[in-house]
Design a protein around this nucleic acid. Sequence first.
RNA 1: GGCGGCAUGGCCAAGUGGCUAAGGCGCUGGAUUGCAAAUCCAGGACCCCCGGUUCGAAUCCGGGUGCCGCCUCCA
Length: 472
Amino acid sequence: MSFQVYNSFSKKKEPFEPLSEGVVRMYNCGPTVYSRVHIGNWRAFLFADLLRRWLEHEGYEVRQVMNITDVGHLTDEMADEGEDKIEAQARREGVDPWKISETYAGQFLADAVTLGCKEAMVYPRASDHVPQMVEMIEALEKSGHAYRTGENVYFDVTSFENYGALSGNKIDELDAGARIEVNEEKRHPADFALWKSDEHHLQKWDTVFGPHGFPGWHIECSAMARAHLGDQIDIHTGGEDNVFPHHECEIAQSEAFTGEQFARYWMHTKFLQVDGGKMSKSLGNVWNVDDVLERGYEARALRFALLRGHYRQPLNFTWDILAESARALEGLDDLAQRLLRKVDGEDAGEEEVAAAATEFRDSMNDDLNVPKAVAALFTLRGEVLEGAVEGAGAQAALDLLAEADAVLGVLELEPAGGGAEEDAEIDALVAARNAARDAKDWAEADRVRDELNARGIVVEDTADGGSSWFRK
RNA sequence: GGCGGCAUGGCCAAGUGGCUAAGGCGCUGGAUUGCAAAUCCAGGACCCCCGGUUCGAAUCCGGGUGCCGCCUCCA
C-alpha cells in the first residue's frame, strides 16, 4: 500500500506523489511568536513532525520548512490603534517587540527539542523575507491582482477565480460585516491586505510602498515557501483554523503570482480541546510544555497523547488522558524489555510479528492512522506475553518497535542500564530474598524487594517458587 | 446569518454497508502469590435521538440535539 493522504483541498484521500521523484517539499505553518506556544499549537507541529518522519520512512528526502512569524499583524481595523499581538505583548512586558519574538521563538525551538521533533531544514523568519514579499506584491500589482490605496496594498479577490476553492466560502456570501467594520478603502470587503502602513507601528520597513510599512498576514508564507522550496510545493500543513482566510489567501496570491498550482496537498489538523471545550486564558487551561513537565510527566507522554488520536479527529486533552498515555507507553517499554530477554529463545512467532508490521505500515500509509497503527503494536504485545514470540520472532518484534519509534518518537527501547557486575549484584539480592522467603522471613523478603524496586528492578515470582527480574 | 467538522462501552479511540464492533487505560470476579507486583482466564456497547433507503447500517440519506472550528489575530 502506498501513502494515501486526505487532501483538504480536494476533500478526499489521494495517493501521495511528489513533484520530484524521491523528494518532498513541505511547508508547515509554524507559530506566531507573541507568547509561549501551547499544547494546542503543538498538536499541529507534532503532526508536521510525524508526517515528515513517515515520509522519510517511505524513503523520501523531506525538505521541511516551518516558518516562525516574528512580525505582528494588524487587522485592518486595529491599524488606527497601531497595535498587534506582538506589540501588545511588548507593551505588557515593557520591552522591545523584537525582544518578544526572539524570546518566544527561542522557547518554541527549545520545546521542539524537548518534544522530540526532528529539526526542520529551515525555520525562516518573516522579518528576514521582506524583499521577497515586496517582490511578489509589486508583481501582483503590475498584473492587476493587487491595488494600492495610499501606502497600503490590497489583493483583489475578484481577480482570482478560484478564491474560495479551499474553504468552500463564496466571496459574496462571506458576511464581511458580521464581526468587523468594513474597511472603506477596500474595493471588495473580502480583499485582504498585502502591505500596510502605519507610522506608529514599531516593526516597520521603508519600501517602495512607503517608509512605515509592514506585511499583511498572508504574504509572508507565500514568500517564504517560494524562497525556500520554489514556486510549487508538495504539502502544506496547518491547523484547521488556517484554512480560511490564511491558506485561501496564500493560494490566491501565490497562484496569481506564479500562474501555477501552489501546493498539491493541503493537510489540516483538527483543534485540540481541553476538558471538553476550547482552551482559553479565562479558563486557565492554556497549558504549555513546562506545565506538563512540572506535573511530573515526561515530554514523550505529551507527545504520545497529542499524536495517538487521528489528526483529523478532534482531540480532547485532559490530565487524565495524559496519565493514561504515560501508562500505555510503559506497556510498550515493558514489551521491549521482555523481548530483549527472549531473543535467545527458540525461534517462534515470526508470522505474528510480520502481520503486526504490515498492520502498522498499512495503517500509517492510510492517512497516518496512528490509533490503528499503535493498536497493532499492542496486539503484538499480547502475543508476546502469551509466550508466542521468541528468538528470531523476538528480534523481528524489536526491529518493528524500532521502526515504529523512528516514526512516533515516544518509545524507550534501549536495554535498561547496568553491566555484568550490577547484574551479579542483583542476582545476589534476588537470591537473598528467596532465601528469606524460604525461611518465611517476610519482613526481610519485602525489604529486599523494596530495595530492588527502588533501583528500578521488577521481581517476578514464578509458580515454582523461584523468581526472575528485569529492569523497568 | 453563511461555510465546515465531530458524536462508538467508565475514560481514550479504530472501524464508514454484511463474520461474535479493533486496541489502550481503568474497573469487577477468578487463577497464581506469604502479601504484592507482573502475568493468565472471565466480565461490559440499545454505536447521541427520530425517521428513511437497503435483503442487510455504527457505517448511506433527511430531520433533531449537543460540541468544535472558520467567517477578526489564532495550530
